[in-house]
């Protein structure tokens, strides 16, 4: 309701008081998080975030920022207003990427060096479960109803479907080489799994675990080896899928129904992760080798700005509206 009301206001051209959201970018080599204003794209702050910050997410109320400090073997929790560290969460060793339950608790964490997914209660700060998965777990996705969490293992090349009540693996789907990211559609009907070295995005039916289609990529004049899919984001209505293509410095725009690639947008160097603004007007990309983020105007399908951030930006999250 709120969003529709806002949209109506925007359409009628009434100036709104700034209820601006913030963009948080983890800088893997800089050991910091950069904060951007979600309207002006100005850098508001850069603060220390522990050693090798990679995965980054925010609580549903927008108040707590969670950062995987991979080399500290912990998840650091920051206040999104003051940027003070509030406390840490036990994460298991080498946390890389995580996903928060839609309710805001618990946190499902991939432990890359130990072939585990750790489930951590963000309120009691206790580990609820450790689930053995394949070699080099990385991608973490959760179904919108919160019943299934999906982990991808980069050397085993599987998407593991984990029951969130029993913490048991109920299904394994083989995908192409080095799966990096798993993303459900908002209605939970499809799961997209990127394979960095395989060069594909598998479209999986979460009910059966079957691979329905493999999206492939091709850009004239770019070596196919450089088209390495990593981050994936899908619009709320499922109509568009955005895929970050690593060292090809492109983001692919894919039709969510036909799975045809509609466009390739040129962004910064080595693009890995993506995040929409809550209104889906913009998509932010982390460009690890050019130390900046690119801002894509989603409707126009073009890059409108690039903003320098810290050293080797890895992940990105935007506070909810």
């Amino acid at each position: 309701m709120m969003r529709q009301a806002l949209a109506a206001l925007l359409l009628s051209g009434v100036a709104l008081p700034a209820q601006a959201y913030k963009v948080f970018v983890s800088n893997e080599r800089g050991n910091t998080v950069t904060v951007l204003d979600g309207e002006t794209w100005e850098v508001l702050a850069e603060f220390p975030a522990g050693n090798r910050p990679r995965g980054i997410t925010v609580s549903p109320d927008g108040k707590e920022l969670y950062v995987c400090a991979s080399d500290d073997d912990t998840v650091r929790v920051f206040d999104t207003e003051t940027y003070e560290e509030l406390h840490q969460l036990p994460s298991g060793p080498d946390p890389e990427l995580f996903v928060l339950h839609p309710s805001g608790n618990p946190l499902y964490i991939a432990n890359e060096d130990d072939n585990l997914v750790t489930v951590t209660d963000v309120k009691t700060r206790q580990i609820l479960a450790e689930i053995p998965v394949g070699v080099e777990p990385e991608g973490m996705g959760i179904s919108p109803d919160g019943t299934r969490v999906v982990n991808t293992s980069e050397t085993t090349n599987m998407a593991h479907f984990i029951d969130t009540t029993t913490f048991e693996i109920v299904q394994n789907t083989l995908v192409d080489q080095r799966p990096r990211f798993a993303q459900f559609t908002a209605d939970g009907s499809l799961l997209y799994v990127s394979a960095e070295i395989g060069g594909t995005v598998s479209v999986v039916d979460p009910a059966s675990g079957e691979v329905l289609h493999k999206i492939t990529f091709e850009v004239t004049g770019i070596l196919p080896e450089l088209l390495q899919p990593v981050g994936v984001r899908v619009t709320q209505d499922g109509s568009r899928v955005f895929v970050a293509l690593g060292p090809s410095n492109r983001v692919a725009v894919v039709d969510g129904k036909t799975w045809e690639v509609l466009d390739y947008l040129l962004v910064g160097q080595r693009v890995w992760q993506l995040a929409f603004t809550p209104d889906e007007k913009f998509l932010i990309t982390t460009n690890g080798n050019s130390n900046d983020v690119s801002i894509i105007d989603v409707a126009a399908g073009e890059v409108v700005q690039s903003v320098p951030v810290g050293q080797q930006p890895w992940g990105v999250v935007v506070t909810p509206q």
Binding site: P132, V135, T155, T156, M158, H160, N172
Partner: peptide, 10 residues
């Protein structure tokens, strides 16, 4: 070890 980790699922 890597192969076995994968093999346990198959």
């Amino acid at each position: 070890e890597d192969n076995q980790t994968t093999g346990q699922f198959l």
